[in-house]
Amino acid sequence: MKCKACSREAGENGYCELHMKAHENVIGKYKVWQEAMRIPWKEYLSEIVKNPLTGEWAREAAESMIKSGEKQDGTSN
């Protein structure tokens, strides 16, 4: 199975080793954003995709989450 964000081999959660950590970070940091500015999940994902400080892999993970409609608990629409 290929990674949801690149062409590398994916692990159990559908992400390769490199994007797995980035994916965890995207999910983990949502709590901070939510507390800081009461932002909904989808808007949060768009914000971090736009933010120039977001790392390349984190952006790719967020983009793939937007595309697949992945929620903050890891489930999809």
Partner: peptide, 8 residues
């Protein structure tokens, strides 16, 4: 750096 997610 590549996995970094900034927080406000």
């Amino acid at each position: 750096i590549r996995s970094f997610v900034p927080t406000p």
